[in-house]
């Protein structure tokens, strides 16, 4: 049965639990991680959650091919390694991948345009799952369509894997602008607004009344520096997703953050004394510094002195790729509708 909650939205118990977890993730940074060591660095730096994936968007972009859900083995390893919530991505429309992720017990599923879409028409029916979903959106209509399908969190799409924040800004401003626009409409104008937004009337009316999305609104896609994080938070993002910005060195090369293992010592790659030390201390230190700095800036986004301190603490940054130089057919944000 639907009943009112404190945030003014009406939702089922299941949706309340899903958006409830999203509430807990507010005011922080969710980091893409490709292995256990990156996950540990993320948690240690203060990430509110990690996103387990095989390749970060920058690598997918550089290497091409079909990008799919991460291997269950990798996801399980990461779930075992950290205590913060673990998210994982399923392809748009690929409900079987989502079923696998739910079975694995991940805390949030990202139906993501970063992966190669599996359905050209239909997104996943997210109401059919107990695991909450986050979905990307470029504008209010898209956000509300995903919410109608059961998404418990929206994130702006931006352009993933670029380190160029311009489209994250565009999409956040677009959504906020359209929300503001709805709040000044008469009741009778909302029907036509719903038609124009191609979104359910009930959700449009709810946004018009409350002046915000009925689920938390996060930001992703090109956020790479502490001040990028502060910018998105000031524009209205409630948390930021950082993908390639933390663990990437070159366009397709991650920083080497692994530690020497006993196995390495056994096969003679390092001495037994080196086990547990960083293989590449400089790279590792750079990743740690970026992760910590971006968390600091996201927490204190409105305090330029602290954002400045965070920016200064960062060693190096991802190379980045201007969105304007990407051919239209390679844009990830245009996947989904």
């Amino acid at each position: 049965m639907a009943e009112p909650t404190n945030n003014g939205s009406f939702s089922t118990p299941s949706l309340r639990l899903k958006t409830g977890l999203a509430e807990m993730l507010k005011g922080g940074v969710i980091m893409d991680v490709m292995n256990v060591e990156q996950a540990r660095i993320a948690e240690e730096a203060g990430a509110v959650a990690v996103m387990a994936l095989e390749r970060v968007p920058a690598m997918i972009r550089a290497e091409g091919g079909v990008a799919r859900m991460a291997s269950p083995k990798l996801i399980k390893q990461i779930m075992a390694a950290v205590t913060v919530p673990v998210m994982a991505k399923a392809r748009i429309g690929h409900f079987a991948e989502a079923q696998v992720l739910q079975h694995l017990g991940v805390d949030f599923i990202d139906e993501s345009e970063v992966l190669t879409p599996a359905d050209e028409t239909h997104h996943i029916d997210k109401h059919a799952f107990t695991t909450p979903f986050v979905c990307g959106a470029k504008d209010l209509g898209e956000a509300l369509r995903r919410i109608a399908e059961g998404a418990a969190m929206i994130r702006t799409k931006g352009e993933p894997g670029t380190g160029d924040v311009v489209h994250a800004v565009r999409h956040m401003r677009q959504i906020i602008k359209e929300i503001k626009g709805l709040t000044v409409l008469d009741e009778q104008e909302l029907y036509a607004a719903a038609k124009e937004l191609r979104a359910p009337y009930e959700l449009v009316r709810m946004v018009a009344k409350t002046g915000k999305l009925p689920v938390p609104n996060f930001s992703a896609g090109g956020i790479a520096t502490p001040s990028d994080a502060a910018l998105m938070m000031q524009l209205g993002a409630e948390t930021v997703f950082v993908g390639s910005g933390i663990f990437m060195k070159g366009r397709a090369t991650p920083l080497e953050v692994d530690l020497w293992t006993a196995e390495d010592a056994h096969v003679g790659l390092c001495t037994s004394k080196q086990v547990g030390e960083a293989r590449n201390p400089e790279d590792r230190e750079e990743a740690v510094s970026r992760a910590k700095a971006i968390v600091l800036a996201a927490t204190h986004f409105a305090d330029p002195a602290i954002v400045s301190e965070a920016s200064e603490a960062v060693l190096g940054s991802m190379k980045g790729l201007a969105v304007s130089s990407i051919p239209a057919e390679e844009m990830m944000q245009d996947r989904g509708w």
């Binding site: 993730l25 507010k26 922080g28 203060g46 990430a47 509110v48 913060v84 919530p85 968390v295 600091l296």
Partner: peptide, 14 residues
């Protein structure tokens, strides 16, 4: 409030 205690502890170190 609720949230991630590990994250909060990190911020409290400052």
């Amino acid at each position: 409030p609720g949230g991630e205690s590990t994250t909060m502890l990190k911020s409290l170190e400052r």
